[in-house]
Design a protein around this nucleic acid. Sequence first.
DNA 1: TAGTGGTCTAGACCACAAA
DNA 2: TTGTGGTCTAGACCACTAA
Lengths: 247, 247
Amino acid sequence: MMPTADGVVRASKLPLYHQLYEILREKVRRAEWRPGEMIPSESELLKRYGVSRVTARQALDALVRDGLIYRERGRGSFVARPALEKGIMRILSFTEDMLQRGLTPGTRVLCAGVIRAPFEIAEKLSVEAGEELVRLERLRLAENEPLSIEESHLIHRYCPGILKHDFAQESLCEVLERDYGIRWSRATQVIRAVVAAPREAEILSIRPRSSLLFLERISYSQQSTPLEFLRIQYRGDRYALYNELTG
Amino acid sequence: MMPTADGVVRASKLPLYHQLYEILREKVRRAEWRPGEMIPSESELLKRYGVSRVTARQALDALVRDGLIYRERGRGSFVARPALEKGIMRILSFTEDMLQRGLTPGTRVLCAGVIRAPFEIAEKLSVEAGEELVRLERLRLAENEPLSIEESHLIHRYCPGILKHDFAQESLCEVLERDYGIRWSRATQVIRAVVAAPREAEILSIRPRSSLLFLERISYSQQSTPLEFLRIQYRGDRYALYNELTG
DNA sequence: TAGTGGTCTAGACCACAAA
DNA sequence: TTGTGGTCTAGACCACTAA
């Protein structure tokens, strides 16, 4: 439900300030303006999009809160430098994560199919036990070396037919967004240290009983519906998480 | 620079919406209204504080973003239930952490002394190698069972004489705040899974080569000076971290 | 001095909830 | 029907920056 072309649609159900916010956010994201560069002033936006000043400011304020732009009185509004994630951990796809770390990502599919939700997973996804889930198990590589095993569980009825894709080539995230309009708004996760089971040790090419960093994550759609339950087991010797805390 | 009494001050340098925000935030914080209870409607706030609707809404929107209130069209604005810390991890003392988890904390001091900063720690604290550091190693207990080993390193010149305290009884955090005026404003940390070394396994009463959740944390004072380098090794079988991610 | 963003106002129409 | 919050407008004055 994006505003068509490049302008706001007054007939739309989406508020004008939200449409304008989306338009400007896309321009920043697509790097239409470079970091540090000035974006159109408020008065230009009023003329360009035919909205009132308050409405335009509502959109701009949201961009400031997102850390995408900053504003200086008397000077203008500017695209922010790629922000240091202010203590907030973002949901990253494996590919994004690897590229940020300067590593080349790779993927092999270990297993892909539909299963009946066991009780403990059904509970986390707020569905009935026995509900159909898409289960996708992938080996993730960094620089062609095994790094982690990811086991995704998606509620099948929200993404029917998704298994026809080859997830060694395509990103699950991208397919969900492109074909099903699903994007993650937030997630909760538990972080543990566990001992590698024999099967996982073999797949990851490590000694049995090595340490693994183990994540269990529930991801929520924009409608705040839990749609994915994810388990990731990272090789303890090759992966660490980084975060910031506030006082 | 709080608004005096209970009203906005038009002569103040602080914007009206910010004054109103502070006033309302205090009322919520002091539990003047109970969670779930309706707060005055916009029209009441306009009359009560003599501001325009846009201004009042600016204050209310900020409270919504803070998670202190929620609003429902046609019904009113209500005090939110105690919010789940929205993805931001806070720096907790061991005691706070245990009490939140409903466990009884305990501490034994394994080692306390002054050392010369080795290179890798000096670097993280931005001091010269060889600078005097207070090193405090503690065993942490939950329900009288070993849970973790904490190794703190503090820059000695910021807290001279701190070792006269008995840290089996006193909290390091509290002593730092009370006697030295030091409080943590933020921290950065790295999270890993490691294999327990023989000494640590013995202290923690676990099998050798068990998995440990390993944190390395640098804590910054209010002046943004790094003052503490902390290593914590948690038993993997008894401890997990929880956090939230944003999309 | 001209242009920018920061603040504030009075008033309007709407969708929605509850009585 | 009444009251609530959601959206939007046109216009105003201000402080600040840069020429």
